[in-house]
């Protein structure tokens, strides 16, 4: 646990100087604040940008940042140095995972400023679940990739599917039929109501299946590749 905290502390210092990761964390919260305040169109659903960008944030930021951090540490050999200093792989992954989750939750907190007070805890809960699944997906990619370039080439299509399918599903029924099996689309459906009433049994099932699948993939990746 102590080593995980050291990793979190290190990562906090590093992120302030890592523009690529920093942009991932602040892009959608900042865009949400700007769009919600700058664009008002008659007939536009309430908090349209908050809900849309929140789901894109879930599908993009944790996925890309976790994959990027792990693959960069592999490429630069710092991960090996950490493991040689007796930092266990699970301590490292826990540190990185919790750190990304925590930063994303701060971002979600910023995005929640337009919501009613009573909606905020539910919104944050939904976001927390989404971030956790995305972090597992990002960790799988990071573990599988030897370097940042490989990670980016895998992350891009995966991110497009997770982050953009809920938006595209709004315009195309066929896409919606496929997208409903993706956790981000189910989170979008729940987000539309921002209450427990918005949760449907099939939605929960799909979320659980997605989460289980990510956990299985993560363990397969970890068992097969470790952190080498």
């Amino acid at each position: 646990m102590r080593n995980s905290l050291i990793i979190i502390k290190k990562q906090l210092k590093d992120t302030l100087k890592n523009k690529t990761v920093l942009i991932q964390f602040i892009l959608f919260p900042v865009m949400t604040l700007i769009m919600e305040n700058a664009i008002k169109i008659d007939g536009m659903p309430e908090l349209f940008f908050t809900k849309l960008f929140s789901i894109m944030y879930v599908g993009m930021a944790p996925l890309t940042s976790v994959a990027s951090i792990i693959s960069e540490e592999k490429e630069k050999n710092t991960l090996r140095v950490l493991t040689m200093a007796n930092v266990k792989p699970w301590q490292y992954l826990m540190g990185i995972g919790f750190y990304v989750w925590f930063i994303c939750m701060i971002g979600a907190g910023v995005m929640a400023t337009g919501l009613k007070k009573e909606e905020v805890p539910f919104y944050l809960l939904i976001m927390a679940v989404g971030f956790s699944i995305s972090i597992l997906a990002g960790a799988c990619i990071g573990i599988f990739s030897r370097n940042q370039m490989t990670a980016t080439s895998i992350v891009m299509p995966v991110m497009m599917v997770f982050a953009f399918s809920p938006m595209l599903a709004m315009f195309n029924e066929s896409i919606e039929k496929v997208a409903r099996f993706i956790y981000t689309q189910q989170l979008k459906r729940i987000m539309d109501d921002v209450t427990f009433a918005g949760i449907k049994a099939d939605g929960i099932c799909i979320l659980v299946v997605n989460a289980t699948l990510m956990i299985i993939l993560f363990f397969i990746a970890f068992r097969k590749k470790g952190l080498e």
Binding site: N3, I6, K9, K10, K13, D14, K17, N18, K76, N77, T78, R80, V81, L82, A85, N86, V87
Partner: peptide, 21 residues
């Protein structure tokens, strides 16, 4: 390979390992 954190200062690089050890 060096295995140093490029974006961190020399002191911060060593702080990470000082904490671990």
């Amino acid at each position: 390979q060096f295995g140093v954190y490029e974006r961190l200062s020399c002191i911060d690089n060593l702080k990470v390992f000082a904490d671990i050890y």
